[in-house]
Amino acid sequence: MIEVYNLSKTYGRIKALDNLSFKINAGEIYGLLGPNGAGKTTVVKILTTISKPDTGSVKIFGIDVVKTPEKVKNLISCVPQENNLDRELTVYENLLIYGMLHKVRNLKQKIYDALLHFDLQERREAYVSELSGGMQKRLLLARALISDPKVLFLDEPTTGLDPQIRRQIWDLIRKAKMEGRTVILTTHYIEEADVLCDRVGILSRGRLIAEGSPEDLKKCVGNFVLEKLDGDGRLIQHIFKSEEEAYVKAKTLGPPFSIRRSNLEDVFIKLTGERID
């Protein structure tokens, strides 16, 4: 269980987090969804002890992250948004140093297993700069999981990856959940939050503006979206609870139009009037 209470953080004049509170259940994949600058990375930095909040508290399995960060570090691992792999070390050495820092037992065997599992065995002696973007992400995930964390933080884990690699990463994230880990995922990819997360918190300007399962959130604003271009070429969207209501409205507007199922971006637009990307 992760409990976040009244978290605030300011960088200069910019309020990154504004009295943010939410709870994450053990064993779920919780997504923090929002546009760039919404505060997602700040939340991850505070929860993973590399940033200190101005006010508020965070507890991970009952341990206070702000007051006793050293006690929580055994429980968590993080795949950061900015690749922080050691470019001066090889794939194997990256796993070795990380494992030693986390006092992982039977480390050599675990590194061997991780290299196999993440399909990096043939590149074990390669430097990070010699790996493709997808391989670097897999190495970041392998590194994070080698310490067998209870809680895994993934900050924009698939940004910049092509769709095929993205799906491979999604499979690895699902597997982490199946192994009993709690996963906190930040993303600005709607589909990612939709297909992976048990629950999603939507962040805007450092505040949580909605929370729930993707289905509940969509149901809340309406499951069907009517889209039509106006005379100036702008896309006009209307959200409806039922497909019938959408068709009734569409007939009044006249063709051409399209009706589709709503997604989390529609929820975000409905709540904030802004787009996510």
């Binding site: 055994n74 691992s77 050691d86 470019r87 820092l101």
Partner: peptide
């Protein structure tokens, strides 16, 4: 620049 230092801070070492 490389942000590798984050790895030390997030590790359970003093």
């Amino acid at each position: 620049y490389s942000k590798t230092f984050q790895m030390f801070i997030q590790s359970p070492i003093s």
